[in-house]
Simulated scan of single mutants.
Amino acid sequence: MRILLVDDDKACADSIGGVLRDEGFVADHVTTLADATLSASLAPYDALLVDRMLPDGDGLDWVRERRRAGSTVPILIITAERDAVDHRIEGLNAGADDYILKPMPLDELIARVRAVMRRPVATLDPVLRAGNVTFDPSNREVRVAGKPLRMPRRETCIFEMLIRRCGKTVTKGMLEEGLYSFEDEVSSNAIEVGIYRLRGHLLGSGATATVHTIRGTGYVLDAPDEPITLPEIPREVPKAALVAAQVAVVLSSQTESPALVPAAIAASLPEATPSETATAVVAAVLAVSLAKRGEEI
């Protein structure tokens, strides 16, 4: 989730930006209303944190302009200069979703940001679902069939963007805009790597939700009606090898970069022993080779 912080107090902005990033948000920081307008026109933000006393005007006037233009993005005013009751009332009546006085406990600020971001769907179940996979935005927890699925922050962020638009195509550009700030250096295949690692986690955990590549467009999270089941495993064949082979075949048919398959295989077998991992790699290579050979026949 991406947030724009508009504040000319560098020390305060650094503190707020740091805690936002620690909590899994992507944070952009600008110091003027002109830059805020430009940033809001370039990136889709999930919330705006706006100071009042800025070098080129009152942040509250900017909030009024946003609301008159039809923006429904949650906006939180953060200020130390205008803290009287009538100022807070003015801010809320102008369109702010919350009015917070500096200095504030940063954990409270995070809680307030999450609260205003939940309001548009307050009447719905806050837990998002796709097949047997659930995602709870309040604690950013992914579960497969009720069991926690622990993933690195980047894959979790990608999964959140996909599950929020389950069944709809999410373009590579949308993922980049939601995952990286203007200051981040993004490699050309960063999204592809993240997607393949996410697929490995989902497939390895028995998730029925799968990520499909829409070539030339983006990705879509799909949840089939029928659960995915593994075939009966003969005793003489290590389960890790069969799981790896299945993952490899699926990924090799969905991705344009088969070289990225080993990373997904490793993610799909977090509890495998070294010998099982070695067997899995061999099985994966054979499975991809046979799959490609079958396509040529």
Rank of each mutant, 00 (worst) to 15 (best):
Asn93Phe: 04
Ile110Ala: 09
Val144Arg: 03
Leu269Met: 07
Gly294Ser: 12
Leu54Gly: 07
Ile100Glu: 06
Tyr99Phe: 05
Arg293Pro: 03
Arg154His: 15
Ala94Cys: 07
Arg293Phe: 13
Ala278Phe: 05
Glu185His: 12
Asp51Met: 13
Asn132Tyr: 08
Arg199Ser: 11
Gly294Val: 10
Ala145Asp: 14
Thr79Phe: 06
Pro137Gly: 03
Lys102Tyr: 09
Asp83Pro: 00
Val50Glu: 01
Gly18Ile: 06
Thr229Glu: 14
Lys292Cys: 01
Arg164Trp: 07
Leu179His: 08
Ala223Val: 01
Met117Thr: 04
Ala240Trp: 08
Val116Lys: 03
Glu155Leu: 07
Thr37Gly: 13
Ala122Gly: 02
Ser275Arg: 09
Gly91Lys: 03
Ala122Val: 10
Val193Arg: 15
Val250His: 14
Asp9Pro: 02
Glu65Tyr: 01
Ala69Ser: 15
Pro231Thr: 12
Thr32His: 12
Leu54Trp: 10
Thr31Ile: 14
Gly57Asp: 02
Arg67His: 05
Gly59His: 05
Thr79His: 05
Thr213Cys: 07
Val261Gln: 08
Arg140Pro: 04
Asp107Glu: 11
Val30Trp: 03
Leu251His: 02
Pro258Phe: 11
Glu185Gln: 12
Leu260Arg: 10
Phe182Leu: 10
Ala94Leu: 04
Val144Ser: 08
Leu260Gln: 09
Ser41Gly: 08
Ile77Asp: 01
Thr208Asn: 13
Ser268Leu: 09
Ala40Arg: 15
Ala207Ile: 07
Lys292Asn: 08
Glu236Trp: 10
Ala69Val: 09
Met174Thr: 15
Tyr99Gln: 01
Ala245Lys: 12
Ala36Glu: 10
Pro74Leu: 02
Ala145Gly: 14
Phe135Arg: 02
Leu48Phe: 11
Ala272His: 02
Val170Pro: 04
Arg64Trp: 03
Ile110Leu: 14
